[in-house]
Design a protein around this nucleic acid. Structure first.
Lengths: 228, 228
DNA sequence: CCGCTTTTTTACGGTTTCTTTACGCTTACT
DNA sequence: AGTAAGCGTAAAGAAACCGTAAAAAAGCGG
């Protein structure tokens, strides 16, 4: 769903950058590393990352200055990482525009959860198009589907099926899985539902844009998948 | 920046509520206290606070359920306060829609700073004071509705429903969301209210201007949305 | 305490959506 | 090539959902 968010990691310690890179990449994020305050600011301005992790102890400039520099041109969520933990420090940083503050040592689990919160915020501020493929745009929160900018009306069941397909986009989803996700576990035998609704979905999507021909692929005897 | 923000404090311990009330009132906030999960949900739905402080150890319901209940109808920032601190707990809460997580004992300074961060987020999402679409004009501060320059009298419930619809204009709002927002979380099953009041709204608006036909769109099985 | 407004309850006809049924087509295997 | 299993599509029937009116109950101001 929120695949491949881009995370800028500003930290002078090589070991931390490598740890972050490994941990975050494993979760499907793209990591932009920066060794110094100056480099961090530059990357932030040029690459427009989705979240910034900022270490406070930088050699060339202190973290507060970096934070303020970023805030001059962007509202991107910034999470502060530091060993310091005095209340006054936290207060100052948070009031200067930081979105969160983690004191080392922190657990990776918590960091990842905090990143997801930060991403939620930045997604809310954007057009929250959660899925996009060619002319097809799907907003899961508002259940709106656009093809080539034009709205396509889908019934509740049609939308649920499309959602199930694209939220595992690229991977085959078995008929059993689809039936149980969309109609409920009692309907796992009713494979004809799938044939009917897949057919309707294809008709509605392809009539708006021929590009979407072949978007929903049948895997005979197994299930269906949406092309990525 | 935004003085007098309204903060809902959900905590069963009287001493904590009094401490929060004193501390936050001194900073110029308005405190809405709630002793139980049920009361908290009710106040959240009716008063639309700017931030919610939620204690996890409630007698009638666990905090996670309250958080999910709130998320059914609102994106208001929720800060979790708790003595628990396992990573798994934090992860679950943050992924369920919490915006921040403070482990007791925490300093008042830090809490206040975290509240300011939360308010910064909600300010960004704050809704406009007026709405306009074709011949329809709505002034949220005076609760007045004009169609083609002429005032249309709406009852309190009718106005609240219209407000809920247009403040997410263009997006589908589920029946559950609408019912919790307008009638309160206890009414999420009463979908017939929606049918009745949507019908009344349409009659009042469309009788003044035929242009408004099709302004409120039904999504069968899902909810309603106002055209933008 | 009474009358007015608003909300809630009750009822029913109409529409949309879901489910069932049916049939032709393709694919793979004997 | 024949056949059986699986898939795609159309169309009818059933069920769920929606819109509207009107009556009963509750709330409010005088």
């Amino acid at each position: 769903m929120k695949t491949g968010a881009r995370i800028l990691v500003i930290d002078d310690e090589k070991s931390i950058r490598r740890f972050m890179d490994a941990s975050l990449t494993a979760k499907g994020y793209t990591v932009l590393p920066a060794k110094t305050a100056a480099e961090g600011l530059k990357v932030a301005a040029e690459e427009h990352p989705d979240v910034i992790l900022l270490d406070l102890n930088l050699p060339d400039k202190d973290g507060l200055a970096v934070l303020k520099g970023i805030r001059d041109f962007s509202a991107v969520p910034v999470i502060i990482l530091t060993v310091k933990s005095s209340d006054a420090d936290k207060e100052l940083l948070l009031d200067s525009g930081a979105d969160d503050y983690l004191t080392k040592p922190f657990s990776l689990t918590e960091l990842l959860a905090r990143i997801r919160v930060a991403l939620r915020h930045s997604v809310n501020l954007r057009e929250d198009v959660a899925f996009r493929h060619g002319p097809l745009e799907i907003d899961f929160s508002t259940r709106k589907v656009l093809v080539g900018g034009e709205e396509v009306h889908l019934t509740a069941t049609e939308f649920n099926l499309l959602k199930a397909l694209v939220s595992h986009a690229g991977k085959v989803i078995t008929q059993t899985q689809l039936l149980s996700e969309v109609w409920g576990p009692h309907a796992v035998e009713q494979s004809h539902y799938l044939r009917i609704y897949v057919s309707q979905l294809r008709r509605k999507l392809e009539s708006k844009s021929p590009e979407l021909q072949g978007f929903i692929i049948t895997d005979p005897g197994v299930g269906y998948r949406a092309r990525v």
